[in-house]
């Protein structure tokens, strides 16, 4: 589904990612961990097509095609979803209206007519249940005045509505209380199927107790320096990143 080869990315002339490689297949869950400031969010943004990043080398192949030239909205319509580390507030725009616009844009891309209002509203209702989102929250403006945890829940709610093929969740677990973490993780799991793939970026192995990854990658120095199974996350939790740094920084 996603194949990143030899990717080199800079921002403001500073190289953040270099020799970055990853291979993600349908049905898989990948976890990416790594110290602060190593480029995890950068990676997520570059896959989603955010402007301001310069791709100096390599390629991003999604569903068999290079997407480097596609606009962010085109990538989104093709099924790439980014759960933001810091979701932004959009005053005055209700979540319902926002989602309606998004859903219909994606449908238009697929050659479908806009979803009838009734059908859309009952679909929203179903999806709200998945993340146990309360109704008053859903009628408010996008992220405006939401608590940190509510913003993250809202990201997963949107993911549930849009049903992406490739979801990249950037620290969706940070800022969540224990119950919310369980709910969000349950939401992510219930959206998982054999045709979609998930990349979770996280600092904590506790999320991986709920969402069991097929692979855990450690990002350091702009590339993946170690890949393992779930046990790698446990090891990191125990020892921190220093042992990896020592292993790498020869």
């Amino acid at each position: 589904m996603l194949s990143i080869k030899n990717l080199e990315v800079s921002i403001d002339n500073k190289v953040i990612l270099k020799n970055f490689n990853i291979e993600v297949k349908a049905g898989e869950v990948h976890a990416i961990m790594g110290p602060n400031g190593t480029g995890k969010s950068t990676l997520a943004n570059v896959i989603a097509g955010r402007e301001g990043y310069e791709v100096l080398n390599g390629d991003i192949i999604y569903k068999g095609k290079s997407i480097l030239e596609s606009k962010p909205e085109e990538r989104a319509r093709e099924g790439i979803f980014l759960g933001f580390q810091y979701p932004v507030e959009i005053p005055g725009v209700s979540i319902t209206n926002f989602m309606k616009t998004a859903v219909n844009e994606i449908r238009k891309h697929k050659g479908l007519d806009p979803m009838p209002a009734g059908e859309f509203l009952s679909m929203l209702k179903e999806k709200k249940k998945i993340v146990e989102m309360n109704t008053t929250l859903a009628s408010r403006s996008v992220n405006q005045g939401f608590s940190g945890g509510e913003k993250k829940k809202n990201e997963i709610f949107q993911m549930a509505v849009l049903e992406p093929q490739l979801a990249i969740l950037d620290e969706t677990d940070s800022g969540l209380d224990i119950d919310a973490l369980r709910i969000v993780a349950h939401g992510i799991n219930s959206l998982k199927n054999k045709d979609n793939a998930t990349i979770v970026i996280t600092h904590y192995q506790r999320l991986l107790d709920y969402i069991v990854p097929d692979f855990v990658h450690v990002l350091y120095g702009g590339r993946i320096v170690k890949t393992g199974g779930k046990e790698l996350a446990l090891e990191l939790e125990e020892k921190g990143y220093d042992w990896i740094k020592q292993e790498i920084d020869i």
Partner: peptide
């Protein structure tokens, strides 16, 4: 730019 990218990322073009 954050707001625009957020919308773009949900499939909504810049004009809209």
């Amino acid at each position: 730019e954050d707001q625009l990218f957020y919308c773009n990322q949900r499939g909504i073009d810049t004009e809209q």
